[in-house]
Design a protein around this nucleic acid. Structure first.
Length: 580
RNA sequence: GCGCCUGUAGCUCAGCUGGAUAGAGCAACUGCCUUCUAAGCAGUGGGUCAGGAGUUCGAAUCUCUUCAGGCGCGCCA
């Protein structure tokens, strides 16, 4: 409908004499035609006359009057009027207005999909939590967000690949391994446990599982292993790791086992959160910097060759300040080990080499200082930094009984994603994670997520869906088939559904906006308003006691309402509820 | 110090690339269940969109600035 109107507007603009094409283009770029927020303003509105006014050096009102005349002559619209400072409000012909319901019911689950992305490939990397323990509630938000934008982009015509980057190469994994080691031989080591090791109960579980599988002896001298370790907790564990790596053959076995176990937990947690990945990319597959053929070595060699990386003070640096970073960054330490940054540079090079049109990184907001650096490296590698889009996700604070839930990883006791799912369920959790723009702090109220009143928007929306399901069931029992059109609405004898239909016509635009801005919360707010319109209608109108023709029309319309709610929720990765 | 984010009703927040009288929910007050799910609906009151300046037909939205709050600034990952 908007297209039809814009077409006429363009014809109208061209009809002006002595107008330069460039001016027309400028106007076309700036004006907007949209669905009205309120039926009092008709169905569709445009601000073109106000935009054109300055370009054409005429008053907005004059242009509006001329345009109204033009549009009336086309006879394509029911009513055209100018309003306020120069808006043009258009009332559509009844048949055009009602065709929305037909479209929704015909396209069903596919309603709202588009080819906006034109098949462009997008890679979304998200969660990517260090595999050193179960996911906590902070990771949950990134998981819900990354997955939701994946769903939204797919439905908007993008080819989406979702990827998890496993940081399985660094010091953190060594600490994990040392932690498990210390638990396995807790008795032999007289309860020794490094101060900086991971203390969570999952470590003991992994240790136990390992023990049950491998009947392992501590066949090295334990005093030389744990005596005279540095007091400093950081240095203590590093020294322990060093001794183990040098003297203990089973180190790599424990490491592989621990990593595997943790990843299994992460995968399971994500699955029960309805988040799946197309690819799990292992940092260690980038190889070692000492290996000439490794991806990491090649990436850094490339940078050195192109004089973007240089040696100084025994380390290799990347000139990131050239691209706006406040200082240059180390790629290879003076002891020859690569930094995490070096891996990341190689990883991003690999991503781009894989041919994606766009890369989206979903990062915790605490990494924002890292963006410049990675962008600089992308430019350094000879790519356009616009290819990369970093979306930051702020932390979520959990509230229970009005108090903030403490989350400490140090003590090992923390509120895990699995705990959250157990407590309020996957769908409610996803919903509230997505209920606010991702890059803003979120206060997540656990009590609210379970409340059975209107304030709990999750159930408010679901309730609308369930009510319709119940109605449809009752209708189907009486008539044993569903209506196939909305005659009473089309011929204007029943108009109480008009607001609902009008709201529904906005849905595809909302999805596009969400895709464009990568903001799933727009869908949530739309659904909330839409559910409100439904509840209001439901309260004021009896459905099944109307005349047969009216009932058929309403049911046909409500069927479309149900589709919209279900489709919207699906984009958020949430299953609609049929009975409450 | 530098960078990013935030400031909208008593509270929690929406408000798209500038648009028509700034919107919800909660809280307060008041109505609506002999009928399809009351986890619902309807109504009333409540605002200097942090302050100031600018851009223009038009600013909560864009620019500058002041104030207030949060976060980030490792040869950690």
């Amino acid at each position: 409908m908007i297209d039809k109107l814009n077409e006429e507007i363009n014809k109208f603009l061209s009809s002006f004499e002595n107008i330069e094409e460039e001016k027309i283009n400028q106007i076309q770029k700036k004006f907007s035609t949209s669905i009205t927020d309120d039926l009092n303003k008709g169905h569709v509105t445009t601000n073109v006359s106000m935009i054109a006014a300055s370009n054409l050096k005429k008053s907005p009102k004059d242009i509006a009057t001329a345009l109204v005349e033009w549009l009336e002559k086309t006879k394509k619209f029911e009513k055209v009027e100018s309003a306020g400072p120069g808006f043009i409000n258009i009332t559509l012909k009844r048949s055009d207005f009602v065709s929305t319901i037909n479209k929704i019911n015909q396209k069903s689950q596919k309603f709202g999909e588009s080819d906006y992305g034109k098949g462009k490939s997008v890679q979304i990397e998200f969660v990517s939590a260090n595999p050193t323990g179960p996911l906590h509630v902070g990771h949950g938000r990134g998981a819900a967000y990354g997955d939701a934008i994946g769903r939204i982009l797919s439905s908007s015509g993008y080819k989406v690949q979702k990827e998890y980057y496993i940081n399985d190469a660094g010091r953190q994994i060594d600490i994990l391994t040392a932690s498990v080691f210390a638990r396995i031989f807790s008795d032999e080591l007289n309860g020794f446990f490094p101060k900086n090791a991971y203390k969570g109960s999952y470590i003991s579980e992994i240790a136990l599982a390992f023990k049950n599988k491998n009947n392992l002896k501590l066949d090295i001298d334990k005093t030389s292993l744990i005596e005279n370790l540095p007091i400093d907790e950081e240095k203590e564990i590093d020294e322990l790791i060093l001794r183990l790596k040098e003297n203990y053959g089973a180190w790599t076995d424990i490491k592989a086992f621990a990593l595997d176990e943790v990843l299994k937990t992460i995968r399971t947690d994500l699955e029960s959160f309805d988040v799946t990945f197309d690819k799990w990319y292992s940092e260690s597959s980038l190889g070692d910097i000492s290996d000439k053929k490794s991806k990491i070595k090649k990436a850094i060699d490339y940078l050195i060759k192109n004089k973007l990386a240089y040696e100084d003070n025994g380390a290799v640096w990347l000139d990131t300040s050239k691209s706006g970073d406040d200082k240059n960054r180390v790629l290879i330490r003076d002891d020859g080990r690569a930094t995490y940054f070096a891996s990341d540079v190689a990883y991003h090079k690999d991503k781009i080499d894989r041919g994606f049109d766009k890369l989206i990184n979903v990062w915790g907001a605490d990494h924002h200082g890292y963006i410049k650096r990675i962008e600089a490296s992308i430019e350094g590698l000879g790519f356009d930094k616009e290819k990369l889009d970093v979306q930051l996700v702020q932390f979520a604070n959990l509230f229970k009984d009005g108090k903030k839930v403490k989350m400490s990883t140090r003590s090992g006791d923390f509120y895990s994603l699995a705990d959250l799912i157990n407590e309020i369920g996957t769908d409610a959790a996803r919903f509230y994670y997505l209920s606010k723009q991702a890059d803003q702090h979120l206060d997540f109220d656990l009590d609210l997520a379970q409340a059975d009143n209107k304030e709990n928007i999750f159930y408010y929306i679901q309730y609308a869906h369930a009510r319709i399901c119940s109605l449809l069931e009752k209708y189907n029992k009486s008539f044993s088939s569903m209506p196939e059109d909305a005659t009473a609405i089309s011929n204007n004898t029943y108009t109480n559904c008009d607001k609902l239909i009008h709201e529904m016509s906005k849905y595809p635009h909302i999805v596009l906006r969400a895709a464009n801005a990568l903001q799933p919360h727009l869908i949530i707010y739309y659904l909330k308003d839409f559910a409100q319109s439904f509840h209001s209608f439901y309260n004021d109108n009896k459905v099944l006691t109307e005349s047969k023709e009216n009932t058929d029309s309403i049911v046909y319309c409500l069927y479309a309402v149900k589709i919209i709610i279900a489709n919207g929720l699906k984009l958020l990765g949430i299953k609609p509820i049929e009975k409450m």
